[in-house]
Simulated assay, not measured.
Amino acid sequence: MEKQVNAKPGTKQKKRIKMNMLIDNFQLATLTLPTIILLGIFAYWPMFGIILAFKDFKVPKGIIGSPWVDPIYKNFQFFFESQDAWRVTRNTLGLNLLFIVISTVAGVIFALIMFEVKKAKYVKIYQTASIIPSFLSWVVVGYMVYSLLAPQGGLLNKIIIGLGGEGIQWYTQPQYWPLILLISNVWHGVGIGSIIYYAALMGVDTELFEAAQMDGANKLRRVFHVSLPQLVPIITIMTLLAIGGIFRADFGLFYNVTRNQGALYSTTDVIDTYVYRALMNQGNIGMSSAVGLFQSLVCFVVLLTSNFIVTKVEPENALF
C-alpha cells in the first residue's frame, strides 16, 4: 500500500513554520511588546491581589503573611449584610443601564447628523467641538457643574430667580441627580462615542444610498432603511462591551460631579464610591477587595450571557 503523500507536518516542522512566521512578522510582533508588557503589569499581575478578598490584611505581615478570614466569605458578608448593599447595587446597575442606552442613542444620532454634513470643513469643526469635553477630567467637569448649580450664585439658580421662581438647593435634592449625571455623562462622551459609528457609516457602499434615492426614499427613509441597518453590527458590539462594565461605575463622575454630598447618596451612591469611603474611612482592604472581585465576576457573567444571547439571535454580531 502506497504511503500517504500529504502527511501531516511533524512537531519540528510546525515549530519551523511558527518560527518563520515570527521572523516574517518581527516588526509587528515588536510593536505589540509594549502593549503586552503594560497589560501584564497593570491587568494580569494585580490579579494576584484577589486573595486579599479572603484575608484579614495586616500591613506588617503583607499579603502572603496575613491570616485568612474565618469564615472564608466574611469580607463578602460584610458588604452584603450592610444596609447600604441594595442601594448602591440598584444605583450602579440602574444608572449604568441608563447611561448605556442614552449614550448609544446619542452617539448614533450624532454620527448620522455628521454623516449628512457634506462639507469636510464643517464636519471637522463639529467633531472637534464634540470631542473636546472628553479631554476634560471629571474634576474640571465637577467644578463646571457646580458653577451652574451652586446654591448661591449658580447660573441656573440665577435664571430661575430671574424668571420669578425660587432657587433650588441642588446639592440637597437627590431626585434631580440621575438626570444631571446622565446629561454630564452624555455631554462628556458623545463626541468620542460617535466616532466609531461615523467611521462605520463612511464605509457603507454609496450605491446603497443612490439606489434608495432612485426608489424615491427621502433622507429619513434612507436613515432607517440603509444607515441604521448597516450600523446594527457595530452597535451590538459596542453595547456588549459597555454591558461588560455595567457593574462598574465611573468613579470620577459619581464622586466629583456630586461633590460627595451625603444628602445625594440615595440616588448617586454607587459601589465604587461606597468602597472608596469604606477604604478611606475604615481602612477595610479585605472588604474593598471582596467587592471588587464581586464586581468583576458579575461583569464577566453578564458579558458572557449577553454575548450568548446575541450568538443565538445573530451570530455574526457576537464578540466571540
Results as ranks from 00 to 15, higher is better:
residue 107 G to I: 01
residue 110 F to H: 03
residue 112 L to N: 06
residue 113 I to T: 08
residue 113 I to C: 13
residue 115 F to S: 13
residue 115 F to N: 15
residue 115 F to L: 03
residue 117 V to T: 06
residue 120 A to F: 13
residue 125 I to Y: 09
residue 126 Y to P: 00
residue 126 Y to T: 08
residue 128 T to V: 10
residue 130 S to N: 03
residue 130 S to V: 10
residue 131 I to D: 03
residue 133 P to W: 11
residue 133 P to Q: 08
residue 135 F to Q: 08
residue 135 F to R: 05
residue 135 F to E: 03
residue 138 W to Y: 10
residue 138 W to L: 01
residue 141 V to Y: 10
residue 142 G to W: 12
residue 142 G to R: 08
residue 143 Y to F: 15
residue 143 Y to S: 08
residue 146 Y to K: 05
residue 147 S to L: 12
residue 149 L to P: 09
residue 151 P to M: 05
residue 151 P to S: 09
residue 152 Q to M: 05
residue 153 G to S: 08
residue 157 N to H: 06
residue 157 N to S: 05
residue 158 K to Y: 05
residue 158 K to W: 04
residue 160 I to E: 02
residue 165 G to K: 13
residue 170 W to V: 09
residue 172 T to E: 12
residue 173 Q to A: 09
residue 174 P to D: 06
residue 177 W to L: 12
residue 177 W to S: 05
residue 178 P to K: 11
residue 181 L to Y: 09
residue 181 L to C: 04
residue 183 I to K: 08
residue 184 S to W: 14
residue 184 S to L: 02
residue 187 W to T: 00
residue 187 W to L: 00
residue 188 H to P: 09
residue 188 H to K: 15
residue 189 G to L: 00
residue 196 I to P: 01
residue 198 Y to E: 00
residue 199 A to L: 12
residue 199 A to V: 13
residue 199 A to R: 10
residue 202 M to N: 15
residue 203 G to P: 10
residue 204 V to F: 03
residue 205 D to E: 13
residue 206 T to R: 14
residue 211 A to I: 04
residue 213 Q to G: 11
residue 215 D to K: 06
residue 216 G to H: 09
residue 221 R to H: 13
residue 221 R to V: 11
residue 222 R to S: 14
residue 223 V to P: 00
residue 223 V to L: 13
residue 224 F to C: 12
residue 225 H to P: 03
residue 227 S to R: 02
residue 227 S to L: 02
residue 229 P to W: 08
residue 232 V to L: 14
residue 232 V to Y: 04
residue 233 P to F: 15
residue 234 I to F: 05
residue 235 I to H: 10
residue 235 I to Q: 06
residue 237 I to E: 01
residue 238 M to P: 01
residue 240 L to G: 05
residue 240 L to C: 10
residue 240 L to Q: 04
residue 242 A to Y: 00
residue 242 A to H: 01
residue 246 I to Q: 02
residue 247 F to L: 13
residue 248 R to E: 12
residue 249 A to I: 10
residue 251 F to C: 07
residue 251 F to A: 07
residue 251 F to L: 15
